[in-house]
């Protein structure tokens, strides 16, 4: 049973992540360790698509900050957001 009092909708967002080419493998490796996101790399550009799942705004803020602070990440641009 879902406890409706404590239940928070999961928020799913997608982003385009721009990175420096030299850090590509390292970034993908780091992101792969996080259970809250999935990664789809472009096959021909220095861009990744990231889907990020967060249970509350605070968690989302921390996760975005974690990603943005990975070495070689140039920018993170949101393309979609919705609650489950």
């Amino acid at each position: 049973m879902i406890d409706l009092k404590s239940w928070q909708p999961m928020v799913i967002k997608s982003f385009l992540l721009y990175f420096l080419p030299k850090n590509k493998e390292e970034i993908i490796k780091s992101l792969a360790q996080y259970s809250f996101c999935e990664v789809l790399p472009s096959t021909n550009k220095n861009v990744l698509i990231i889907t990020l799942e967060s249970e509350d705004p605070q968690a989302e803020k921390i996760r975005i900050s974690t990603i943005e602070n990975l070495p070689g990440v140039e920018s993170l641009m949101m393309t979609f957001g919705a609650s489950v």
């Binding site: 997608s14 889907t51 979609f80 957001g81």
Partner: peptide, 13 residues
């Protein structure tokens, strides 16, 4: 929703 999120990112890209 994850599919939609990826689709949106694909279109934007």
């Amino acid at each position: 929703i994850k599919e939609l999120a990826i689709s949106a990112a694909l279109v934007s890209a």
